[in-house]
């Protein structure tokens, strides 16, 4: 069986922009590290900070939330709701001591496959150099 890949990075991608950008990266045969695992939501506004905390809890080394650019949201302003939540979540993650490089909110339109690839490469490099996220368990 193939080796488990590290680090592991969870991507929440909105159906209309960012998921489509990842599709476009595929169609264009771009290359990016395989460590990014995509979970599709209809809108970045569906992403609950709880999922991101859960992901870190379960061993994610990084989390990327990707949505449409402001003004371009398929649901008018779901991405703005994501922006509000993630702005506060960022401070909470800092409180937990999670390095800021491990969590990103990015606006990636359906045509911005290159932007996704750039973000993925950056995140991969940064997280690789931070090493795995180790949480303290019980006593």
């Amino acid at each position: 069986m193939s080796q488990d890949l590290e680090p592991r990075i969870v991507v929440f991608a909105c159906n209309w922009c960012s998921y489509a950008a990842l599709d476009l990266a595929g169609v264009s045969r771009m290359k990016y590290p395989p460590n990014f695992l995509v979970i599709k939501v209809m809108c970045s506004g569906r992403v609950d900070p709880q999922f991101i905390l859960e992901a870190f809890r379960r061993g994610a080394d990084g989390v990327l939330v990707a949505g449409c650019h402001p003004g371009d949201c398929h649901y008018i302003e779901g991405n703005i709701k994501a922006l509000r939540r993630m702005t506060l979540l960022r401070r909470v993650l800092e409180g937990f001591g999670i390095e800021k490089e491990r969590f990103r909110l990015e606006w990636i339109s359906a045509s911005e496959a290159e932007k996704f690839v750039r973000v993925a490469n950056e995140m991969y490099q940064e997280i690789k150099s931070l090493g795995p996220l180790k949480l303290q368990e019980t006593v």
Binding site: V41, M42, C43, G45, R46, V47, D48, H74, Y75, G78, K81, R85
Partner: peptide, 9 residues
């Protein structure tokens, strides 16, 4: 329309 923003909130 099924965006789910209310669900997260």
């Amino acid at each position: 329309k099924g965006c789910g923003a209310c669900v997260a909130s």
